[in-house]
Nucleic acid binder design. Structure first.
Length: 481
RNA sequence: GGCGGCAUAGCCAAGUGGUAAGGCGGAGCUCUGCAAAAGCUCUAUUCCCCAGUUCGAAUCUGGGUGCCGCCUCCA
């Protein structure tokens, strides 16, 4: 079996063949840090996190590079508005980004190059482009000459003439053609600038990704990722720059994730229409947010609504509750492997079958929605086994195989199954616990005396206070809503 | 105007030629003093519409309708 990925560049699903055996180079476009990290950023992050984890299951060694575009018009504008240093501002929001990602359980990239620290390779690439005849200087700025690159428009499937006719913004008079884009912007007063052979200034938006990806991943590396909103012009321009300078478009597989909309409108920093990751995490556990993001294919659009989250929450809880039960049934100590027969052997085969289906799903362009469905199917199979199985060494070993699968697939790969019982982390302090124990004891006595009226009243009034009681055969559980 | 995508049950959502996964919700049942929780069972003769190709279409082709994204900073 091989991994198939949908490549925007070819607009087909292709078999993934790494440049180097068992090694994968990934460049994912990061953020321009000038505002809080929002849920829109969570989508590609979660997806690439899962892709990385999955590739490792195939024993690939992953090198993941993700940039911070910390020199940019928006950053400078906001810094001036607030009267702070532009780099300090971007450092602050870069940190916010990293913290948000950590909080979502996303593994960090191996390298986080920043424009401000990579001027040499950026300038180097601009010089090469000028030498190759793909770029020209004008009044201290350098522009990429789109006309010099015949393949321009291939990624976004646009023809140059059409693009030009659609141009609505004010064109820099120094440009030879309206579609040309800046590689180097001449310094303006009161703006941060760096020295270069073209004079003081700063890089344009797209060049940093081409230069930094090349520096850390080389030419012709494996994956380049980002949201669909980056296809044009960002990635189109990156390809033009990379191919113009090196002959290689940079990456061989271009993967784009769909937008995450908030109440039917795309989240966007510039419009202020967004929900930050930190805000969302106050209401929803990270595993639930990941579950939600992964419940749709990464290329499709996804709506974010509080109600939608609440809708999927129940199913997610059932899955987690089941894994908790399985974990406690298996116990702390890992059972010793032993030969299986009968129902245990059947379960072992069922597990293997579901693992195959999980891999089939993930290998088909990382179909996480299908992969999650496989986990639900497996849950059902394991549960029906557990209901009829008698305790034995074989039984415990068979269950541990099931648990191992949920751990590997649900936690290690997808990160949707919780490791710990978060209910125990609910606000239950010592005093509260003692008080509740007393109340439950009294109520239990009432129930034994068949004074159900009063017992139910206690439950009902606690419920109004936000404390839910559940009478089970093993006693009464309580939790804070 | 150009480019691209999407349309599957009340909702979310897989499924690219072989007769509709999964989740939520809903209904019934089991358990329970009751409730909750949990479990079990059921829940689309049909995939936006119309034509066509085919033994066979949600899947392919043509036409139509609707929604969305990009074309300007964006993940």
């Amino acid at each position: 079996m091989a991994i198939q990925v949908y490549n925007t560049l070819t607009r087909t699903k292709q078999t993934f063949v790494p440049k180097e055996p068992q090694q994968v180079g990934i460049y994912v476009c990061g953020v321009t840090p000038y505002s809080e990290t929002h849920l829109g950023h969570a989508r590609p992050s979660v997806i690439w996190d899962v892709i990385k984890r999955y590739l490792r299951r195939w024993n690939y060694q992953v090198l993941h590079v993700q940039n911070f575009t910390d020199v940019d018009d928006k950053i400078i504008a906001k810094a001036q508005e607030r009267g702070v240093d532009a780099l300090e501002l971007s450092a602050y929001y870069s940190q916010d980004y990293l913290e948000s990602m950590d909080a979502l359980g996303i593994e960090r990239a191996d390298v986080y190059p920043r424009v401000s620290e990579e001027m040499d390779v950026i300038i180097d690439m601009i010089e090469t482009l000028v030498e190759q005849g793909h770029a020209y200087e004008a009044e201290g700025s350098v522009f990429f000459a789109v006309a010099s690159f015949s393949e321009y428009g291939r990624l976004s499937n646009q023809r140059l003439e059409e693009l030009q006719s659609g141009t609505r913004f004010e064109v820099d008079p120094n440009k030879r053609s309206a579609m040309d884009f800046a590689l180097w912007k001449a310094a303006k007063p009161d703006e941060p600038s760096w020295d270069s052979p073209f004079g003081p200034g700063r890089p344009g938006w797209h060049i940093e990704c081409s230069a930094m990806a090349r520096k850390y991943l080389g030419e012709n590396f494996d994956f380049h990722g980002g949201g669909t909103d980056l296809i044009f012009p960002h990635h189109e321009n990156e390809i033009a720059q990379s191919k113009g300078a090196t002959g290689s478009p940079g990456a061989r597989y271009w993967l784009h994730s769909g937008m995450l909309n908030l109440k039917e409108e795309k989240m966007s920093k510039s419009t202020g229409h967004f929900l930050t990751i930190k805000e969302a995490l106050q209401h929803y556990p990270k595993e639930l947010l990941r579950f939600y993001v992964l419940s749709a294919h990464y290329r499709s659009e996804l709506e974010f609504h509080d109600e939608k989250l609440d809708e999927v929450r129940r199913g997610w809880q059932r899955l987690n509750q089941f894994v908790r039960e399985l974990r406690s049934s298996v116990g702390e100590e890992l059972p010793v492997p032993c030969p299986l027969s009968g129902a245990e052997q059947q379960l072992k085969e069922d597990i293997a079958e579901h693992r195959r289906r999980f891999d089939d799903a993930m290998c088909d362009d990382f179909n996480t929605a299908l992969a999650i469905a496989v986990l639900f199917d497996l849950m059902k199979v394991v549960r029906s086994y557990m209901e009829q199985a008698a305790a034995s060494a074989e039984n415990r070993y068979a269950q541990s195989l099931a648990l191992q699968s949920f751990t590997e697939l649900g936690s290690d790969v997808l990160g949707v199954v919780q490791w710990h019982d978060t209910e125990s982390e609910a606000p239950k302090d010592g005093y509260m616990d003692a008080a509740m124990r007393l109340i439950l004891d009294v109520r239990q006595r009432l129930r034994q005396e068949k004074n159900f009226e009063l017992a139910d009243q206690i439950r009902s009034e606690l419920q109004d206070a936000g404390i839910v009681l559940e009478d089970t055969p093993d006693g009464t559980r309580w939790k804070v809503e």
